[in-house]
Simulated assay, not measured.
Amino acid sequence: MGFAAQASVQGGKGPARPDRIAKIRLQFKTFLSEATGFYHDLIMKIRAKYGLPLGYFSEESENRIVMEKDVKKSAEMKKGLISCHRCLIYLGDLARYKGLYGEANSKSREYTAASSYYLQAASLWPSIGNPHHQLAILASYSGDDFLTVYRYFRSLAVDNPCSTARDNLIVAFEKSMLLE
């Protein structure tokens, strides 16, 4: 092996070995599975700490908080719901990554799981735009331009819009204009 080839391999820029790629892929899948388990457990702990029943995640959850007579308990429940909302977004992201980097046969299953987590987050806290932004990203994977644009608009048309949705919406419009 010549000096240039040896330096290239030593610098980490040599040809990738299939066994190394498989090992890294396995480690990444393990990380995704462990992180998913962590967030599922965290949601259960949050629900227990703040007294949120298992069936509490519904479209009426925000209304139930407002109707709660005990203001302090209502504020505590709100903290718990916000924490669960974030966990659902993270779970959706993890499922999306599993779909992106997993085997071909798991993509639709993982995207369905990601969509489910994002929809739960959207119904749990409808005034936050991030879940719709994430759903727009999922829609873009399937090439559904209409749904992508719709979800980006939904992520902007709330009290707390997603900060990157506007830029991504512009990119989606530009992309659809180039395809015509």
Rank of each mutant, 00 (worst) to 15 (best):
T164V: 14
L81I: 08
P131S: 05
N63W: 00
Y117K: 09
A172R: 00
Y97S: 14
I43L: 07
Q27R: 13
R96I: 09
L179R: 10
T30A: 15
F28H: 10
H132S: 14
V171F: 08
A139P: 01
E174I: 07
L88T: 01
E76W: 01
A157S: 08
A165M: 04
K98V: 05
S176R: 08
I89S: 04
E34Y: 07
S127M: 13
I137K: 12
L100N: 10
A4H: 09
S163C: 11
S140A: 10
A114K: 07
C162M: 05
G12Q: 14
A48Q: 14
I128W: 12
K29A: 15
G102Y: 06
A157D: 05
N105G: 06
A48D: 12
A95T: 10
E59G: 15
I82A: 13
S116P: 01
E110D: 15
L179T: 07
Y111Q: 12
L156A: 04
H85N: 08
S108T: 14
Q6A: 09
N63E: 04
N160I: 14
S83I: 04
E110W: 11
D145P: 05
K73Q: 07
Y141W: 14
F28N: 09
K175L: 13
P161A: 05
A122D: 08
G129N: 03
C162Q: 06
M77Q: 10
F3A: 08
Q10V: 11
Y101R: 09
S108I: 12
T148I: 02
V158E: 03
F173Y: 03
V171H: 09
S106D: 15
S140K: 02
S33I: 12
G99C: 03
L138N: 00
L178H: 14
W125D: 11
L119Y: 07
R109K: 15
L147R: 02
R17A: 14
L26M: 03
G14E: 05
A35V: 04
K72A: 01
E180V: 12
E34F: 06
V149D: 00
S83E: 12
R25H: 09
I128P: 01
E59Y: 03
S61R: 10
P15W: 00
S116M: 12
P53I: 06
K13S: 15
Y101L: 15
S155I: 01
L91G: 01
E76Q: 05
Y50I: 02
D41N: 12
N130Y: 05
A157R: 02
N160T: 14
E103G: 13
E76K: 06
A121T: 00
S74I: 01
L100W: 06
R64S: 12
A16Q: 15
H40T: 07
V66H: 02
A75T: 05
A122G: 10
L138G: 00
N63V: 03
E68T: 00
G12H: 05
L94P: 04
L119W: 06
P126G: 04
I65F: 00
C87K: 02
V171W: 06
N160V: 13
D41C: 08
Y90Q: 11
M177G: 05
S106G: 07
S176C: 04
D145Q: 09
S163R: 14
A121S: 10
G102K: 08
F57Y: 11
L179E: 08
N168E: 09
G80S: 06
A172S: 03
R17P: 02
M67I: 01
K107E: 12
G92I: 03
G55W: 02
P126Y: 04
G11N: 14
L32T: 13
T30W: 11
L179W: 04
